[in-house]
Nucleic acid binder design. Structure first.
Lengths: 220, 220
DNA sequence: ACCTGAACACCGTTCAAGT
DNA sequence: ACCTGAACACCGTTCAAGT
């Protein structure tokens, strides 16, 4: 089977899925395809084009999933329809944890992402959004529209269990944060320090925004 | 003047400010300091530590600015206080456009960022937030808490003025998006395609979230 | 048309050696 | 204690050359 742009991009996704995005080098990608690194340049201009390409592959996978959803979106139903779409997109991205980072660095926008956004605007228009409100809504959602957010920090490491003395010193400098952590961790003693339920928090933020938009929509 | 961790990090910020983050290499950084690349390793463990370091330098600059704000935050005043803080943080980041991207890749969290977040939780507590609500609020704000969001795409390029024929073809595939763009661009004929006012959109999304939180706070 | 070998410029980093 | 020269492994990429 000869090489092709298609095969190169699919292999690139496989490499990133298996070894993470930092393992995706032109030489490693060629190896995956049983070819030499230089052969790739016949099918793609450079590595940037590979990154643009795999972003588009993932966005296409998202579109394939969400386009099978057939939810009513007229009037007040818009919110459930949009919510379902975004959470489905998120499920796809959870299978490709490197993808959000790649989307972030893309300056060229993926056609499949534009297609996704277009459908989202369509749902909001069904809900009675003005074009102006739909536009602001896209900005308000930001990366959440595609199903991810950028965590400020990963609570899994750092600030860990350094023993009581360091904890007391920390409580002095960070009274509010330590107080919050202790109380929230106390309420949910299962997860001692992996104390954030990503899915729950994502939905909380998403609903906060969707509810706010719905309120503006009604009074417009 | 001998090298020092401090000088290395300040020089790294200068290099990034001047030439962008991709211009920040160990060799270029050493040149800026009139030294050899290998000398840097006496003061920092590796490049990752440089990146952790400059993230912390910027976060410290943010703290220096926001700590001078003395706004009332009790009860309903919390929202104005938080809003002002976040918009001030944003002003600092606009002077270091590379910084959001660096924050994003940091897996080790900057002490100065933690300090910033702690103060933010304090303001919310002043406003009557439960620790639980403050915790969800941090996740809902996400990177917006620090004053930035990740744009889905940069409207300055792509989808540009490819003439009427391509536009008609685009309108066919992307009816909602093209319709939205045409209407919003029509309302604001100044900015033909740089049609998004970043500052306005940032504040719109921020206020949407803050208003939603305020409503939950009141009914709690 | 499609693939490759040799080579180049550029990384981050190690380590033994200088002062 | 602080800095450096030489060297290594690894990048992305060019280009002339193979089939």
């Amino acid at each position: 089977m000869p090489l092709s742009r298609e095969r190169v991009l699919r292999a690139a996704v496989d490499v990133a899925d298996q070894g993470g995005i930092e393992s995706l080098t032109m030489r490693r990608l060629a190896e995956e395809l049983g070819a030499e690194a230089m052969s790739l340049y016949y099918h793609v201009a450079n590595k940037e084009e590979v990154l643009d390409g795999i972003a588009d592959v993932i966005a296409t996978e998202i579109n394939d999933v969400v386009d099978q959803i057939d939810a009513p979106s007229k009037g007040p139903d818009w919110k459930k329809a949009v919510r379902q779409r975004i959470l489905s997109a998120r499920e796809v991205l959870l299978r490709h944890p490197w993808a959000p980072g790649v989307f972030d660095t893309r300056t060229n926008l993926s056609p499949a992402v534009v297609q996704y956004i277009d459908a989202l605007v369509g749902l909001m228009r069904d809900g009675g959004f003005s074009n102006d409100l739909a536009h602001h809504a896209l900005h308000a959602l930001g990366s959440r529209a595609l199903g991810f957010t950028h965590e400020l920090f990963d609570p899994s490491d750092g600030a860990g269990d350094e023993g009581g003395a360091a904890m007391l010193e920390m409580a002095d400098r960070l009274p509010h944060l330590v107080g919050m952590m202790m109380e929230v961790a106390h309420d949910d003693p299962d997860s001692t320090l992996g104390w954030c339920d990503d899915q729950f928090e994502f939905e909380f933020g998403l609903d906060l925004i969707l509810d706010g938009l719905d309120r503006i929509r009604e009074t417009a």
